[in-house]
Simulated assay, not measured.
Amino acid sequence: MSDNKSFTKSIIYDWILPILAAIVIAYLINTFLLFKVYIPSESMKPTLNEGDQLFVTKVYDKNKIKHGDVLVFYSHELQDLLIKRVIGLPGDKVEVKDGNVYVNGDKLDETYVKHPSKKPGSFVVPEGKFLFMGDNRANSNDSRFWKDPYIDGKDIRGKAQVRVYPFNKMGWIK
């Protein structure tokens, strides 16, 4: 009888508790620190390709978001999580003309854009909102095409940090 109790205790302490602790820790990390995303389209090519998988860190302080950050956010209009590059911060005036983007009158040096689009646009980003575009401008359903081109700061989920798949392209996101 004592051996049976000892065996049960051993199972609980050696297996069940460590497994439960690992599940709780994984849940907490996924909820509060980082999560993994899959890239479903070519809208961020060449920075991110269809099928890439990334680790994304949660964004808590929206004031730390900078032009050029690659962020994951929820679009209420499209009812989906998207990943795009921040082009406009709250209060920015953004002009898109002849394939170039100007923020507050300054032309952006967008070396990451390999396929520009000729679609023009003019935006004044409201307070608390952000303007996003894909790097593959010729093939990106982004702010330029949405009925409401702005994403509220509360809908920003995280910042893309590192590509983890495919393994031969593993590395930090620029």
Rank of each mutant, 00 (worst) to 15 (best):
D3S: 12
N4V: 12
N4Q: 13
K5W: 10
S6Y: 10
S6R: 13
S6A: 14
T8V: 15
K9V: 12
K9P: 07
S10G: 10
I11E: 09
Y13S: 03
D14A: 07
I16D: 02
I19P: 00
A21I: 13
I25N: 10
Y27V: 14
I29H: 04
N30Q: 15
L34C: 14
F35I: 07
V37F: 06
I39H: 01
I39V: 15
S41G: 09
S41I: 11
S43D: 01
S43C: 08
M44W: 02
M44N: 11
K45D: 14
L48V: 12
L48Q: 00
L48K: 06
E50Q: 15
G51S: 11
D52R: 03
Q53N: 11
L54C: 06
F55E: 00
V56Y: 02
V56R: 08
T57H: 13
K58R: 15
V59I: 15
D61Q: 12
N63K: 15
N63I: 04
K66F: 08
G68V: 11
G68L: 11
V70G: 05
V70N: 07
V70R: 07
L71H: 01
V72Y: 07
F73Y: 15
Y74Q: 08
S75Q: 06
H76W: 11
H76G: 05
H76K: 13
E77F: 08
Q79C: 08
Q79T: 09
L82P: 03
L82D: 00
R85H: 09
R85L: 04
V86Q: 09
G88K: 00
L89N: 04
P90D: 01
K93Y: 09
K93A: 05
V94E: 04
E95F: 10
V96F: 05
D98R: 11
G99H: 06
G99Q: 03
G99K: 06
N100L: 13
V101A: 00
V103Y: 02
G105P: 03
K107D: 09
L108C: 08
T111V: 12
H115F: 14
P116S: 08
S117T: 11
K118F: 04
K118S: 15
K118L: 14
V124N: 11
V125K: 01
V125M: 09
V125N: 02
E127K: 13
E127G: 08
G128V: 05
K129G: 01
K129Q: 12
F130M: 02
F130Q: 06
L131V: 02
M133D: 03
G134D: 03
R137M: 09
A138G: 10
A138D: 10
N139V: 02
S140M: 04
S140P: 06
D142M: 05
W146H: 09
W146P: 00
D148K: 12
Y150F: 15
Y150S: 10
I151D: 02
I151K: 04
D152S: 12
D152K: 00
G153Q: 04
R157W: 13
G158F: 01
G158P: 00
K159H: 07
K159M: 07
K159T: 00
A160I: 06
A160M: 01
V162G: 02
V164E: 01
V164A: 09
V164P: 02
N168M: 03
K169R: 14
K169W: 08
M170D: 06
M170L: 15
G171Q: 02
G171R: 07
W172F: 14
I173R: 10
K174D: 14
